[in-house]
Nucleic acid binder design. Structure first.
Length: 150
DNA sequence: GCCAACGTTGGC
DNA sequence: GCCAACGTTGGC
């Protein structure tokens, strides 16, 4: 079982939206490094839900991978902002996962707190200028985040 | 709203 | 293959 961190702007899709929907396809990731991490995800992996572009940004809850290797349907939808005309349906370019809601943390962990508790090497999201929307989190760091969230 | 960081595109 | 131009992300 692996841990991950996944970003979403709450104005686009928040943890409350996931709580309401129970599951969602994490669509719209159009960065190869993030896509490669998505393809490494396995059933049962846990992911921290991070609100980006929020005031303040930070980790708000937890979700679980229920379906790996999902072909992102928005790449073939010409009405979607995530439409990719260069993606071939016989060899899709963009893969993602389906996730389910696990919980909203009792304590929100803001970015300033994350920066105080973790070095950029320990947790990529605290790196300045970091733009990766999906990243791995080690077991040890995940346990420390879970403890802070209680 | 600003702007630094940084990934992508496309001309050469 | 280089790299300038450009577009996007995301903190502040």
């Amino acid at each position: 079982m692996n841990y991950w961190l996944m970003k979403s702007e709450p104005q686009t899709y928040s943890i409350s939206d996931l709580d309401r929907d129970r599951t969602t396809i994490w669509d719209g990731v159009r960065n190869y490094q993030a896509r490669n991490y998505l393809r490494q995800m396995q059933v049962g992996d846990l992911a921290f839900f991070y609100h980006s572009n929020a005031t303040p940004p930070g980790i708000v809850g937890l979700m679980r991978v229920v379906t790996p290797e999902v072909i992102d349907p928005t790449q073939f939808d010409s009405s979607s902002p995530y439409y990719d005309p260069k993606s071939d349906s016989h060899s899709p370019r963009w893969y993602t996962v389906k996730v389910e809601f696990v919980k909203v943390f009792p304590r929100f962990i803001s970015l300033p707190t994350l920066k105080q508790k973790f070095s950029p090497e320990e947790l990529g999201v605290v790196k300045q200028g970091n733009r990766l929307s999906v990243m791995p989190v080690t077991e040890a760091i995940a346990q420390r985040i879970l403890a802070l969230a209680q």
